[in-house]
Design a protein around this nucleic acid. Structure first.
Lengths: 197, 197
DNA sequence: CGGATCGTTGATCAACTTCAACGGTCGTGG
DNA sequence: CCACGACCGTTGAAGTTGATCAACGATCCG
């Protein structure tokens, strides 16, 4: 299927646009193909784009002062990803965002987004809804981090994102859940005894 | 100072409104005074309002299955607070939001907010900016939770919100930082040896 | 084929929790 | 306005969760 068609479906689910608005919004995005292991955002560079993942998988992470690697977010098909502190405030990034597979993105740059939001009320609405959902999603993650043990977080992850759990490398899942790969391995071992898979 | 005047200053910092838009937006909010220990949101009830704190202090928290109490957010003067998963999606809340001091709020209800956003482009912009900031703020918290030790998180908290650290009860700060009150007490004790305060 | 990357395992170790007990302060009802 | 109980912060000892360290096998990819 055509890449813009996938994205169009995504838009329609959030907001009803006139043909003109739809054309303008789609026109703001540029198609980009990236290879596995390629970076689309790096620390010290401003995050230039908000990224919609048409197809593929990405991971954003930071490096702690201990040198450890901590996953902030995943994005697979039909998700968004960026360094929101960098993009929103147009400041240098603190995060890496890297492709975990060969992927296809639709990117909008900051100035274009601002212009479209100012020009079309319903495009503003579109991005407002996105920001609200991002905020609500992040809040759920904070709750999970504060209230659950490592094992419970893994269970919850399997339940919430079963396909992602299959598709993503183990080290990335572990660091997303705030534990070491070794400890995740322990958990999985225990699980094998009780249940296949 | 008049309560609405404080709020007006807050609005002006985000977006430039015409007198009509300003009147409409302010008109959407109702003043509410709450006493210390009073709840403004409780689990199983829908969060009816988005709350701007004119003056006072609030705390939102969830109860884990262990019965433990986990602070999700604080809000003191000039901050917003709600259960965003409940308010955004109009579903039953999972959080408590309680006043830590006698406080003054400005509340808008969901339907009014939707109506104003639909009617006035720049009011939509106002809330969009709020949502983006909330998302960016939550992302910083996630990074902190994943990358820092308990002691580092306390340091960062003192630096980021020195006045809040003074004003809020210790048990609330500890549970916000994801540690027990006992452990926070240990950290503070160590600190006394090195530096006053 | 050979090196890098990824997941695994087991032993030791550290960060943080839990449990239990105590002193201070705050607010409330008598 | 005082007394009492509830709430809050503190301390120390023992216990757990999850990290660290080190080593190995498997797989992927050039």
């Amino acid at each position: 299927m055509d890449e813009y068609e996938v994205f169009k479906q995504h838009i329609v689910k959030r907001v009803a646009l006139t043909p003109e608005e739809m054309t303008e919004l789609l026109g703001g995005f540029r198609l980009k193909k990236v290879k596995k292991k390629q970076f689309i955002i790096q620390p010290d560079f401003k995050a230039m784009h908000r990224n919609y993942v048409v197809q593929g998988a990405f991971r954003s992470y930071v490096i702690g002062q201990d040198g450890g690697d901590h996953t902030i977010q995943f994005a697979i098909d039909d998700w968004w990803i960026s360094d929101y502190n960098s993009y929103t405030y147009q400041r240098p990034a603190t995060m890496f965002v890297v492709a975990l597979e060969d992927s296809t993105l639709l990117q909008i740059d900051y100035e274009t987004e601002q212009r479209l939001k100012a020009q079309y009320h319903k495009i503003e609405t579109f991005f407002r809804i996105g920001a609200e959902r991002t905020a609500a999603y992040h809040q759920r993650r904070i709750i999970s981090a504060l209230t659950q043990t490592a094992e419970e977080r893994y269970d919850a992850f399997l339940e919430a994102y079963p396909s992602a759990a299959q598709r993503l490398p183990q080290y990335a899942v572990a660091s997303y859940l705030g534990m070491t790969t070794q400890f995740l391995s322990q958990i999985r071992k225990k699980r094998l005894g009780k249940k296949l898979n």
